[in-house]
Amino acid sequence: MNASDAVAGGNDDLRRRLDWAVKIAREAGEITLRYFGAKIEVERKSDDSPVTVADREAESHLRRRIAEAFPDDGVVGEEWGTAEGSGAYRWILDPIDGTKSFIHGVPLYGTLVGIVYQDRAVAGVARIPALEECVYAAEGMGAWYTRGEMPPQPARVSSCDRLAGSAWVTSEVANFDHVGRRDAFFRLQKAARLVRTWGDAYGYLLVATGRIDFMIDPLMQVWDAAAVAPIIREAGGRFSDWKGVYSFSSGNGLGSNGLLHDEVLAVLAAVLPETAAPEI
Rank of each mutant, 00 (worst) to 15 (best):
residue 191 A to C: 02
residue 28 A to W: 04
residue 148 G to I: 11
residue 210 G to W: 07
residue 195 V to W: 04
residue 97 D to K: 01
residue 148 G to D: 11
residue 85 G to V: 10
residue 236 G to C: 12
residue 186 F to L: 14
residue 8 A to W: 01
residue 129 P to G: 04
residue 143 A to L: 13
residue 37 G to L: 02
residue 115 I to F: 12
residue 130 A to M: 07
residue 91 W to Y: 11
residue 197 T to R: 08
residue 129 P to W: 00
residue 245 V to Q: 15
residue 108 L to E: 06
residue 55 D to A: 03
residue 25 A to H: 01
residue 273 P to A: 14
residue 117 Y to R: 13
residue 261 H to R: 10
residue 251 G to A: 08
residue 96 I to N: 07
residue 48 D to A: 15
residue 50 P to E: 09
residue 271 V to C: 06
residue 231 I to G: 03
residue 60 S to E: 10
residue 254 L to Y: 06
residue 4 S to D: 08
residue 195 V to A: 02
residue 212 I to N: 02
residue 104 H to I: 05
residue 133 E to C: 07
residue 89 Y to S: 07
residue 121 A to Q: 02
residue 81 G to E: 05
residue 132 E to A: 08
residue 226 A to E: 02
residue 260 L to R: 07
residue 183 D to I: 05
residue 20 W to D: 10
residue 57 E to P: 12
residue 266 A to R: 13
residue 111 T to K: 02
residue 3 A to F: 15
residue 23 K to V: 02
residue 255 G to V: 08
residue 54 A to K: 04
residue 272 L to F: 04
residue 81 G to C: 03
residue 130 A to E: 09
residue 9 G to M: 00
residue 54 A to L: 00
residue 196 R to Y: 06
residue 76 V to M: 13
residue 38 A to V: 10
residue 270 A to R: 09
residue 159 S to N: 14
residue 275 T to N: 14
residue 145 Y to H: 15
residue 82 T to C: 05
residue 131 L to V: 05
residue 127 R to A: 11
residue 15 R to K: 15
residue 182 R to K: 00
residue 23 K to E: 09
residue 73 D to V: 10
residue 107 P to N: 01
residue 111 T to V: 13
residue 133 E to G: 00
residue 113 V to H: 04
residue 212 I to W: 01
residue 200 D to G: 01
residue 133 E to R: 13
residue 65 R to A: 01
residue 257 N to K: 10
